[in-house]
Amino acid sequence: MSEAATDPIIRRVEVRNRAGLHARPATMLSLKAKEYDAEVELVLVEVPDNHHLEAGTRADAKNSIELISLGAPFGTALDIEASGADAQGAVQALAELFETCFGLEDD
């Protein structure tokens, strides 16, 4: 019998740093996500008017370039979705980065 796929762990977060999800936060997220075996994605929950991407667009959290391509400004809601043995830990670690504004003061 094949192993049943488990549901992904999902947590909603918000971009809280004023400058948005630019290169540095994206790099920090990808480096953190790479510490886990789980597959982790960020999903745009909603986008501002005239945004270049639609809500529902996904990015591999381990790929900083994909994260930057989301162009998520301040206030954007995103879902962190993770699947795999250490998915819970991965979601928690990434959510903490959002909650602490990536440790970037005046950003």
């Binding site: 400058a19 630019h22 290169a23 790929n63 370039i65 994909e66 930057i68 391509s69 162009g71």
Partner: peptide, 17 residues
């Protein structure tokens, strides 16, 4: 204008990905 930086970086990353 710093407001312009993020969308430009995003559009560049779209090509880069």
């Amino acid at each position: 204008d710093p407001e312009e930086y993020l969308p430009i970086a995003a559009r560049i990353a779209q090509i880069a990905r």
